[in-house]
Each structure stands twice: as C-alpha cells, then as structure tokens.
C-alpha cells in the first residue's frame, strides 16, 4: 500500500486516490490541427517508462486536488514535486 503525498493533506494511503496517468499527456491546444497520427498518439500511447514517471494523482476521497508526483515504477519511490497551488 503506497503512501501518497497529497500537497494539501499530507501522506495518505493510496486507496484514497486515483492515479491519473502520465502528466506528459497534455491535451493539444487545437486538436483540429493535429494529424491523425499525432492525435492517435495523444489518445492512446504512453511513455510507460520503467523508472521515474511524472504522473497525476487525484485525492478523490479527500480534498479532491489533482496534483503531480514523480514516482519510480520499479521501486515505487515517490518524490513530491508540487507545492500547494495558490
């Protein structure tokens, strides 16, 4: 059971959260300008690295904040990277 560092609530058990996937997936500013290939890449593909990944987590059973952490997918080591948004 991971302990996820919520910037607002502190360390809480993973089952209060939902993992929101890779933070590098950023919605294109103007999807209409994307080629079919680029759009498919955005929709479906992941870097899915073995190692550190920056990802979104959502504290759904808590403060409902979406925040980013760096998490190592091999060791599960977590580094908080966000201060509380203003």
């Amino acid at each position: 059971m991971l302990e996820i560092p919520c910037p607002w609530c502190g360390l809480r058990n993973e089952n209060e959260f939902i993992c929101g996937g890779e933070a590098q997936r950023k919605r294109p500013a103007d999807p209409d300008r994307e080629t079919d290939e680029a759009w498919a890449d955005y929709l479906y593909n992941n870097a899915n690295p073995k190692g550190v990944v920056t990802e979104w987590w959502w504290h759904v059973s808590g403060c409902t904040l979406w925040f980013k952490i760096d998490r190592n997918t091999l060791t599960h080591e977590i580094t908080p990277i966000e201060e509380l948004p203003e």
Binding site: G20, W56, T64
Partner: peptide, 11 residues
C-alpha cells in the same frame, strides 16, 4: 465528475 474536475484542474 472526475472528467470535468480533471479538465478544470489539469488542462
């Protein structure tokens, strides 16, 4: 709810 909240907070 997750869908909208996510878009508002992340995109």
């Amino acid at each position: 709810y997750a869908h909208i909240d996510r878009l508002l907070q992340t995109e």
